[in-house]
């Protein structure tokens, strides 16, 4: 969090144009979202939809493996897609259909694997 903030300020100060790929560096989630406790069982059900593409063996051909990643990383990634700070249309759509609790549930579930 803190380093993200500093980085955002740094970019603003030196005046680099913030284009799509850099946008995520200034994307900050409030603690009210980061502190939501994910429901593991709900996450497991929701995750079944993700596992059509994100493979359990974590191979990342064309689509990255996400099993066992940190909760905060997954929460950020999903909110960044939802808010279109990341570009993939499939993920923008999938995350766009999730509310804050569902994102927390999914992140908690995927982080719990391995």
């Amino acid at each position: 969090m803190y380093s993200r903030l500093l980085f955002g300020i740094f970019i603003a100060v030196i005046g680099i144009a913030v284009h799509a790929e850099n946008k995520k560096e200034e994307f900050i989630l409030p603690s009210s979202i980061l502190e939501i406790e994910g429901d593991l069982a709900y996450g497991e059900y929701l995750a079944s939809d993700c596992q059509t593409c994100h493979r359990a063996d974590n191979s990342d051909q064309g689509i990255p493996g996400i099993h066992g990643r940190e909760t905060i990383e997954l929460v950020y990634a999903l909110h960044e897609y939802k808010n279109k700070y990341r570009t993939n249309e499939v993920m923008q759509m999938m995350a766009g259909g999730l509310d804050d609790e569902e994102i927390a549930a999914l992140a908690t579930y995927f982080a719990s694997l391995q």
Binding site: Q51, T52, C53, H54, R55, S59, D60, Q61, G62, I63, N88, E89, V90, Q92, M93, G96, G97
Partner: peptide
């Protein structure tokens, strides 16, 4: 909600879309 690829996309975008389909096939 939905989306569709756009006409006139760059070759890089189209290649990434194809590669994504390979991942999807392995996944499903």
């Amino acid at each position: 909600d939905g989306f569709i690829s756009k006409t006139g996309e760059t070759a890089d975008v189209r290649k990434a879309t194809y590669e994504e389909s390979l991942g999807w096939y392995a996944g499903i």
